[in-house]
């Protein structure tokens, strides 16, 4: 949800349809609701409703269509355009969504994306802007306690937000996490990351240095997605990466039927061939036991 021009279709096209940021200039306004279904992490299918934000549609959503639109919602992603001139009417729309969600899908999770952050170059001003939204939204969201992300199609913040949103939809996440942690211990790897195959969103990451967040893997997400698109020009598809120097070895390999794995080792005693064999050996376990 969000006003027309906020960037909803752009972000959907970037994450789920191999668009580049430049390609989004070709998008027209969304007519009514565009439904799409994407397979995610094996057995999951995400039903995405991209709701066109022009007035005539919004009225309809809040009136005749409200049960249809707001019933059975698991996640509401509300997109704010940072540059909206009329903040009051923006919040009015947001309030209406929250009200209806409270009536028809009380257990839904709400995320708000403050979008087009690239228009504010300075990091501290970005933070201030987000804080402002956080405060305003905390007051008006009742039981939903929305999480607020700053995003832009021009950097990896969008991948970060969507990774966070989507991984919480995976029911077996804590099991996957546990198994991945065991894999990391057994292989003595410094870092292990699971990426979803189609979107390359980060599903789960284990880092021996606990302080480091998963944010840095978004660079990899974006690099691989871009590279995969570019590979189509030579009619080939990317399989794997293996980067080595004296200090580390990095592997990116197809893992289960719905994931890729990234493994970084920093111990020079560990032979690359052994790491690769370990990845192969763990694959059936993850695929058959965790069904991913």
């Amino acid at each position: 949800m969000g006003r027309s021009g906020a960037g909803k279709t752009s972000m959907r096209s970037l994450i789920f349809a191999n668009y580049s940021a430049h390609d989004t200039r070709r998008l027209g306004a969304t007519i009514d609701v565009e439904h799409s279904t994407v397979q995610f992490m094996g057995d999951m299918s995400l039903n995405i409703w991209d709701c066109g934000g022009q007035h005539k549609y919004l009225d309809n959503y809040m009136n005749e269509q409200k049960e249809n639109i707001f019933g059975n919602v698991e996640v509401l992603i509300y997109v704010f355009d940072l540059e909206t001139a009329n903040k009051d009417s923006e919040y009015t729309l947001y309030d209406e969504c929250i009200n209806n969600l409270g009536k028809y899908s009380r257990d839904a999770k709400v995320y708000t994306l403050v979008h087009k952050m690239d228009k504010i170059p300075e990091a501290d001003l970005k933070e201030a802007k987000l804080d402002m939204y956080r405060r305003a939204l905390a007051k008006r969201s009742d039981l939903f306690m929305p999480e607020v992300f700053g995003t832009s199609i021009w950097d990896n913040t969008l991948f970060h937000a969507w990774s966070q949103i989507v991984r919480r939809l995976v029911p077996s996440m804590s099991t996957i996490e546990r198994h991945l942690e065991r894999f990391q211990k057994l292989t003595e790897a410094a870092e292990v990351v699971l990426f979803e195959r189609a979107t390359f969103l980060v599903v789960c990451s284990i880092n021996s240095d606990k302080g480091a967040g998963s944010n840095k893997y978004m660079i990899v997400s974006q690099a691989i997605k871009t590279y995969r698109n570019r590979c189509t020009a030579i009619q080939s598809a990317l399989q794997s990466f293996e980067i080595r120097n004296r200090d580390f070895s990095l592997f990116i390999e197809p893992f289960t039927k719905s994931t890729f794995i990234l493994v970084i080792t920093t111990d020079p005693e560990i032979e690359p061939a052994v790491t690769k064999a370990n990845i192969k050996a763990a694959q059936p376990h993850f695929q058959d036991k965790l069904l991913i």
Partner: peptide, 25 residues
């Protein structure tokens, strides 16, 4: 991609840090 490994590479001796990559298609 390799930028995420920046923390692991000690600066200095040029030749020791040389990198090798294989990309499988």
């Amino acid at each position: 991609i390799v930028a995420i490994c920046a923390g692991y590479t000690a600066m200095g001796e040029e030749e020791a840090g040389l990198q090798k990559t294989v990309v499988g298609m």
